[in-house]
Write a protein that binds this DNA or RNA. Structure first.
Length: 492
RNA sequence: GCCGCGUUCAUCUAGGGGUCUAGGAUGCCACCCUUUCACGGUGGUCACACGGGUUCAAAUCCCGUACGCGGUACCA
């Protein structure tokens, strides 16, 4: 029986939670739920220059919105805390010391200028980006080249320094990625990564390895951008005598035009990129989650519609795809409509309330639910309900194209005649209003369509919407009659 | 440039030597349903990047090329 699965989502609080980040979080969450393991949130705030104070709150809000409940994290705690890297510095310092003492890392004093000078010196057409590595570390100022007492003196002096990983020269690091299979790197292509920055903070690489080990993380699921740093991480695990977690690197989410889905490209294409934007755009979390889950993973069956628990059951790391997936707003909207249709009218009313009230002011509960019932099958987003303003107030205008198409010479007279019949109805419901119209059509020897379309226009101001008689009932007897007469007067 | 990863309809994808004249979904088009618009239903449109090999047989395996993406930071 293997150890219980522990996974983490480890975002850096440098901005709003990105949609790609949410997918990474989702896959981790799914694995945790499916195995009965733990889903941990760790805030990787080791870069002071890029730190955004509101980001952590946004990450928390985004995960909560999507329904990805945390088992451990900075706000609810857990046995493996603290969950912010800025609060775990001692751990990193200890690990760095161990690495240096074991000869797997070293202290370096080079300034940025000196490193740049080395690179300039080494730069050739064949090698435009020389690294700080086994081939160059010998000519730099570090504890490998300087006499021990000099190093000690500098350190005692408080000289600025970093700790670098001492990457061996000629090794091949091979590992198994659960998505990609066997991957290998030659250490000659890996440079001596800075592990501790001159401000004393660890870089991602050190902190990540230390924390994944300290927190008992068994499975790392993260973006493909980390694949090439795996050898560095593995070298550290080996040097520290720790067992590395299982690894799975996710293909990236691409913009609809194929490039990287960056803030900038997304803005240009008019697609949201942060989770907060999806929420504001009126997408349902269930739909976003479903869409994201299928962007790079598939269940191997024809099922496309999933709830979060269904996803947790069907999820399988081995079925994650290998190639980048382009984001498609069309498909997301389809998922949104599908998930909307699975909600009750009460739930839709709830989710549409804000947009509706922004459009027409306060609306009573029952009116909102009635409206939701009527428009249920027609909504792509709950907020679309706000477009049917006629369900809540008299139409202010009549769609010109609709008038042109549907309002004929006899329309005013027919609408007035129908208004009279509706007004006289003792029972006002779908059956009686429809019967009244059929009778009128017969009496006037006018086609049903000659009446129904103008009446819709008169009552709603548009040519589209739910069934007319259902709409009439929702609007109410008096209001319907009044609207018909007013339209007959106005449109002539 | 170098290193790594990838490449099936416009898009998300199934498939992993014969069952593939390549399946599903979105999009688009048409038709049906229908008082409108949707929903739903039916049908259509549309793909194995290219070139070599291996094999009786390749979308599937191997090699190369092209293209794309990632990395090449004291950012994550």
């Amino acid at each position: 029986m293997p150890d219980a699965v522990r996974v983490r989502f480890a975002p850096s609080p440098t901005g709003l939670l990105h949609i790609g980040g949410l997918r990474t979080a989702l896959y981790n969450y799914l694995l945790a739920r499916q195995t009965g393991g733990a889903f941990v949130l760790r805030i990787e705030d080791t870069d002071r220059s890029r730190y955004v104070p509101e980001a952590e709150q946004d990450i928390l809000a985004g995960l909560a919105w999507a329904g990805l409940a945390l088992d451990e994290g900075p706000t609810q705690g857990g046995d493996a805390g603290p969950y912010r890297q800025s609060e775990r510095r001692d751990l990193y310092a200890d690990a760095a010391r161990l690495l240096v003492e074991g000869g797997h890392a070293y202290v370096a004093f080079d300034t940025a200028d000196e490193i740049e000078a080395m690179k300039a010196r080494r730069r050739t057409d064949a090698n435009p980006t020389p690294g700080y590595d086994a081939s160059t570390r010998g000519e730099m100022a570090n504890s490998l080249t300087l006499p021990a007492d000099d190093v000690a003196a500098r350190l005692a002096d408080g000289a600025e320094h970093v700790v670098r990983l001492r990457v061996p020269e000629d090794q091949t690091i091979t590992f198994t990625d659960r998505v990609r299979g066997e991957v290998s790197f030659d250490t000659a292509t890996v440079d001596d990564q800075v592990l501790v920055k001159s401000d004393g903070m660890p870089t991602y690489h050190l902190a990540n390895v230390v924390d994944d080990h300290a927190m008992g993380i068994t499975d790392v699921i993260r973006g493909e951008e980390w694949l090439s740093s795996v050898p560095k991480h593995l070298l550290m695990y080996r040097a520290l005598g720790w067992t590395p977690p299982r690894l799975a690197h996710l293909p990236l989410i691409l913009s609809p035009t194929g490039g990287k889905l960056s803030k900038r490209s997304a803005d240009r294409l008019g697609i949201p990129v942060s989770v907060a934007q999806y929420r504001e755009a009126g997408f349902e979390p269930e739909a976003v989650v479903n869409f994201l889950a299928l962007l790079g993973w598939n269940p191997g069956t024809d099922q496309e519609l999933f709830t979060l628990p269904e996803l947790a059951e069907a999820f399988d790391v081995e079925r994650i795809g290998t190639s980048g997936a382009q984001f498609s707003l069309d498909k997301l909207e389809w998922f949104n409509g599908q998930h909307l249709r699975r909600l009750s009218s009460e739930e839709i009313a709830d989710r549409a309330r804000q947009s509706v009230e922004t459009a027409v002011g306060p609306v009573p509960d029952d009116a909102l639910v009635t409206a939701a019932e009527l428009m249920h099958e027609r909504l792509t987003k709950a907020s679309d309900l706000a477009q049917a303003t006629y369900l809540f107030q008299d139409p202010e205008a009549y769609d010109p194209a609709g008038v042109k198409k549907r309002w004929k010479d006899d329309s005013a007279a027919l609408v007035r005649a129908y208004a009279d019949r509706v007004e006289a109805l003792e029972t006002f419901d779908i059956e009686t209003t429809e019967a009244a119209m059929r009778e009128l059509a017969e009496a006037e020897d006018a086609g049903f369509g000659r009446i129904v379309h103008p009446v819709r226009l008169a009552v709603t101001g548009t040519t589209v919407g739910a069934g007319l008689f259902e709409t009439l009932v929702a609007v109410g007897q008096d209001a319907s009659v009044a609207r018909m007469r007013r339209a007959a007067d106005r449109l002539g």
